[in-house]
Amino acid sequence: MRRVLVVVGESLLPEDLDRVLGALSWADADLDLLHVVDTRPLREFDLAAGGLPGRSGQTSERRGRMGALGAEAGARILADAAAAAAPRLPAVVTVRPWQRTGIPEHEILAAAHEIGAGLIVLGATGDPAAPPPPPPGRHRRNAEPRGPADPPRFPHRHLSPTARFVVDHAPCDVMVIYGGTPSRTPER
Protein backbone atom coordinates (compact mmCIF):
# COMPACT_ATOMS: atom_id res chain seq x y z
CA MET A 1 0.00 0.00 0.00
CA ARG A 2 1.51 3.31 -1.10
CA ARG A 3 0.88 6.24 1.22
CA VAL A 4 0.58 9.58 -0.56
CA LEU A 5 1.21 12.48 1.79
CA VAL A 6 -0.46 15.66 0.51
CA VAL A 7 0.41 18.80 2.44
CA VAL A 8 -2.47 21.29 2.42
CA GLY A 9 -2.29 24.86 3.63
CA GLU A 10 -1.67 28.28 2.17
CA SER A 11 0.62 26.88 -0.56
CA LEU A 12 -1.79 24.13 -1.66
CA LEU A 13 -5.41 25.05 -1.09
CA PRO A 14 -8.31 22.58 -1.14
CA GLU A 15 -9.56 24.06 -4.44
CA ASP A 16 -6.30 23.04 -6.17
CA LEU A 17 -6.52 19.44 -4.96
CA ASP A 18 -8.35 18.03 -7.99
CA ARG A 19 -5.30 18.75 -10.15
CA VAL A 20 -3.14 16.71 -7.78
CA LEU A 21 -5.58 13.85 -7.47
CA GLY A 22 -6.18 13.67 -11.21
CA ALA A 23 -2.45 13.42 -11.93
CA LEU A 24 -1.89 10.35 -9.75
CA SER A 25 -2.82 6.69 -9.95
CA TRP A 26 -4.81 5.59 -6.90
CA ALA A 27 -4.60 1.85 -7.40
CA ASP A 28 -3.36 0.43 -4.10
CA ALA A 29 -2.76 3.88 -2.58
CA ASP A 30 -4.03 5.81 0.43
CA LEU A 31 -4.23 9.57 0.88
CA ASP A 32 -2.84 11.28 3.98
CA LEU A 33 -3.87 14.95 4.11
CA LEU A 34 -1.49 16.88 6.34
CA HIS A 35 -1.81 20.40 7.69
CA VAL A 36 0.95 21.89 9.83
CA VAL A 37 0.19 24.72 12.25
CA ASP A 38 3.32 26.81 11.75
CA THR A 39 4.77 27.73 15.14
CA ARG A 40 7.16 30.32 13.70
CA PRO A 41 4.61 33.15 13.68
CA LEU A 42 3.61 32.24 17.24
CA ARG A 43 7.22 32.19 18.35
CA GLU A 44 7.79 35.47 16.56
CA PHE A 45 4.96 36.97 18.61
CA ASP A 46 6.50 35.50 21.78
CA LEU A 47 9.83 37.09 21.01
CA ALA A 48 8.40 40.52 20.20
CA ALA A 49 6.01 40.56 23.16
CA GLY A 50 8.72 39.16 25.45
CA GLY A 51 10.70 42.35 24.80
CA LEU A 52 8.03 44.42 26.55
CA PRO A 53 8.83 44.58 30.24
CA GLY A 54 6.17 43.55 32.73
CA ARG A 55 3.81 42.07 30.14
CA SER A 56 4.52 38.34 30.37
CA GLY A 57 1.06 37.47 31.80
CA GLN A 58 -0.79 38.94 28.84
CA THR A 59 1.64 37.45 26.34
CA SER A 60 1.06 33.80 27.25
CA GLU A 61 -2.73 34.15 27.25
CA ARG A 62 -2.77 35.75 23.81
CA ARG A 63 -0.25 33.28 22.46
CA GLY A 64 -2.56 30.44 23.59
CA ARG A 65 -5.51 32.02 21.78
CA MET A 66 -3.43 32.47 18.62
CA GLY A 67 -2.35 28.81 18.66
CA ALA A 68 -5.98 27.69 19.02
CA LEU A 69 -7.02 29.97 16.13
CA GLY A 70 -4.27 28.58 13.89
CA ALA A 71 -5.33 25.01 14.69
CA GLU A 72 -9.00 25.84 14.02
CA ALA A 73 -8.22 27.46 10.67
CA GLY A 74 -6.07 24.44 9.76
CA ALA A 75 -8.87 22.04 10.74
CA ARG A 76 -11.20 23.94 8.38
CA ILE A 77 -8.67 23.64 5.54
CA LEU A 78 -8.36 19.90 6.24
CA ALA A 79 -12.14 19.42 6.28
CA ASP A 80 -12.47 21.34 2.99
CA ALA A 81 -9.62 19.31 1.49
CA ALA A 82 -11.17 15.98 2.58
CA ALA A 83 -14.53 17.07 1.17
CA ALA A 84 -12.89 18.12 -2.11
CA ALA A 85 -10.90 14.89 -2.38
CA ALA A 86 -13.56 12.29 -1.58
CA PRO A 87 -15.65 12.56 -4.80
CA ARG A 88 -12.53 12.38 -6.99
CA LEU A 89 -11.10 9.19 -5.50
CA PRO A 90 -12.10 5.55 -5.84
CA ALA A 91 -14.15 4.46 -2.85
CA VAL A 92 -11.45 2.05 -1.67
CA VAL A 93 -8.95 4.86 -1.07
CA THR A 94 -8.72 5.78 2.61
CA VAL A 95 -8.41 9.54 3.28
CA ARG A 96 -6.73 10.45 6.56
CA PRO A 97 -6.77 14.12 7.62
CA TRP A 98 -3.90 14.86 9.95
CA GLN A 99 -2.74 17.98 11.79
CA ARG A 100 0.68 18.58 13.29
CA THR A 101 2.20 21.59 15.01
CA GLY A 102 5.74 22.85 14.50
CA ILE A 103 8.03 24.12 11.78
CA PRO A 104 6.32 22.98 8.55
CA GLU A 105 9.35 21.56 6.71
CA HIS A 106 10.43 19.56 9.77
CA GLU A 107 6.92 18.27 10.45
CA ILE A 108 6.34 17.28 6.81
CA LEU A 109 9.53 15.22 6.79
CA ALA A 110 8.81 13.71 10.20
CA ALA A 111 5.31 12.73 9.03
CA ALA A 112 6.70 11.21 5.81
CA HIS A 113 9.16 9.12 7.84
CA GLU A 114 6.48 8.08 10.33
CA ILE A 115 4.03 6.69 7.77
CA GLY A 116 6.69 5.51 5.30
CA ALA A 117 5.27 7.82 2.63
CA GLY A 118 5.79 6.80 -0.99
CA LEU A 119 5.17 10.31 -2.30
CA ILE A 120 5.01 13.79 -0.80
CA VAL A 121 2.87 16.35 -2.63
CA LEU A 122 3.22 20.00 -1.68
CA GLY A 123 2.71 23.51 -3.05
CA ALA A 124 5.71 25.34 -4.47
CA THR A 125 5.10 28.81 -3.06
CA GLY A 126 2.84 30.59 -0.67
CA ASP A 127 1.25 32.19 -3.72
CA PRO A 128 -1.91 30.49 -4.91
CA ALA A 129 -1.98 32.55 -8.08
CA ALA A 130 1.68 32.64 -9.07
CA PRO A 131 1.86 33.26 -12.80
CA PRO A 132 3.48 30.59 -14.95
CA PRO A 133 7.15 31.28 -15.52
CA PRO A 134 8.20 33.22 -18.61
CA PRO A 135 9.74 31.20 -21.46
CA PRO A 136 13.55 30.98 -21.50
CA GLY A 137 15.24 34.17 -22.61
CA ARG A 138 12.36 36.43 -21.60
CA HIS A 139 12.86 36.53 -17.87
CA ARG A 140 14.49 39.51 -16.30
CA ARG A 141 17.63 38.07 -14.82
CA ASN A 142 20.43 37.13 -17.24
CA ALA A 143 18.00 37.44 -20.11
CA GLU A 144 20.55 37.71 -22.91
CA PRO A 145 23.16 35.00 -23.59
CA ARG A 146 26.56 36.65 -23.42
CA GLY A 147 28.25 34.54 -26.10
CA PRO A 148 28.36 31.13 -27.75
CA ALA A 149 30.05 29.54 -24.74
CA ASP A 150 27.32 30.84 -22.44
CA PRO A 151 25.17 28.04 -20.99
CA PRO A 152 21.43 28.20 -21.81
CA ARG A 153 19.37 30.21 -19.37
CA PHE A 154 16.19 29.06 -17.73
CA PRO A 155 13.39 30.94 -16.09
CA HIS A 156 13.52 31.38 -12.36
CA ARG A 157 10.66 29.91 -10.37
CA HIS A 158 10.23 30.66 -6.73
CA LEU A 159 10.19 27.70 -4.41
CA SER A 160 9.21 28.62 -0.90
CA PRO A 161 11.85 27.85 1.74
CA THR A 162 9.57 25.07 3.02
CA ALA A 163 9.24 23.44 -0.41
CA ARG A 164 12.97 23.76 -1.05
CA PHE A 165 13.84 22.13 2.28
CA VAL A 166 11.43 19.23 1.72
CA VAL A 167 12.72 18.65 -1.84
CA ASP A 168 16.28 18.63 -0.50
CA HIS A 169 15.66 16.21 2.37
CA ALA A 170 12.69 14.02 1.44
CA PRO A 171 12.98 10.26 2.04
CA CYS A 172 10.79 9.58 -1.03
CA ASP A 173 9.59 11.14 -4.30
CA VAL A 174 8.27 14.68 -4.12
CA MET A 175 5.68 16.28 -6.37
CA VAL A 176 5.73 20.07 -6.34
CA ILE A 177 2.56 21.85 -7.40
CA TYR A 178 2.67 25.37 -8.77
CA GLY A 179 -0.42 27.08 -7.48
CA GLY A 180 -3.38 28.60 -9.30
CA THR A 181 -2.70 28.30 -12.98
CA PRO A 182 -1.71 24.84 -14.29
CA SER A 183 2.07 24.55 -14.45
CA ARG A 184 3.42 24.49 -17.97
CA THR A 185 6.72 23.22 -19.23
CA PRO A 186 8.17 26.07 -21.22
CA GLU A 187 8.57 25.15 -24.86
CA ARG A 188 11.81 25.88 -26.60
Partner: peptide, 12 residues
Protein backbone atom coordinates in the same frame (compact mmCIF):
# COMPACT_ATOMS: atom_id res chain seq x y z
CA UNK B 1 9.59 38.52 2.02
CA UNK B 2 9.11 38.49 -1.78
CA UNK B 3 8.98 34.66 -1.79
CA UNK B 4 6.51 34.51 1.10
CA UNK B 5 3.92 37.01 -0.09
CA UNK B 6 0.98 35.75 -2.10
CA UNK B 7 0.48 37.66 -5.37
CA UNK B 8 -3.27 37.19 -5.06
CA UNK B 9 -5.22 36.36 -1.93
CA UNK B 10 -7.18 33.09 -2.22
CA UNK B 11 -10.73 33.54 -3.46
CA UNK B 12 -12.20 31.30 -0.78
Amino acid sequence: FRDHLPGRLPRA
